[in-house]
């Protein structure tokens, strides 16, 4: 039957029927294909060859493929190992949430501290921003002589005025 192995396989329209025919075959039995398939097989070399090949492969696998050994299939410890893995996994999940909770509480505390710090810094920043205007005002208006001219209009003039005044000189 292996003399015709140059065929391209069974006719696609008959593959399902051929498989059903094979499935109906029990070891040692001589089942007959349904009439439609039987008629087709009688005239189709390709399908006959494909059927023979499939039967051979089926017989080979049934006979020689190794089933799951009983030592594994009926291992009494298998279920216990699965249960241990489940418990281990649940344990990890159980540890995870409290850890996450404590981490989140810690993060919140950090965030709050940071917010307070930023608030304090920004408040002092505002205070400092408002200070230069005050410092531009002469510390002692009397230090500036009226005779020195018109009132200063910018900080440089204030400084110059201070330096040129009596008190300014003494301070230097």
């Amino acid at each position: 039957m292996w003399f015709f192995n140059k065929t391209d396989g069974a006719c696609p329209a008959f593959e399902v029927r051929l498989e059903e025919y094979l499935e109906g075959l029990q070891p040692g039995s001589v089942a007959h294909p349904d009439p439609v398939l039987a008629t087709h097989l009688a005239g189709c070399l390709r399908c006959r060859e494909a059927l023979d090949q499939a039967r051979e492969a089926s017989a080979l696998v049934r006979e020689f493929a190794i089933p799951v050994p009983d030592s594994l299939a009926h291992n009494p410890f298998f279920a216990a190992r699965v249960a241990a893995r489940i418990r281990e996994n649940s344990g990890r999940a159980g540890e995870f949430w409290p850890q996450l909770e404590s981490v989140s509480i810690r993060m919140m505390a950090y965030a709050l501290s940071l917010a307070v710090l930023l608030g304090a810094l920004s408040a002092s920043g505002f205070a400092r921003l408002s200070q230069p205007a005050a410092s531009l005002r002469p510390a002692d208006p009397r230090a500036i002589s009226l005779a020195s001219g018109p009132a200063p209009v910018n900080p440089d003039e204030v400084v110059i005025a201070l330096l040129s005044s009596e008190r300014g000189r003494q301070q230097r």
């Binding site: 192995n5 399902v16 499939a54």
Partner: peptide, 13 residues
């Protein structure tokens, strides 16, 4: 069914 039939043939090939 179709794939199984082809797989068997492939194994035989």
């Amino acid at each position: 069914k179709v794939r199984m039939f082809r797989a068997r043939r492939r194994l035989s090939d």
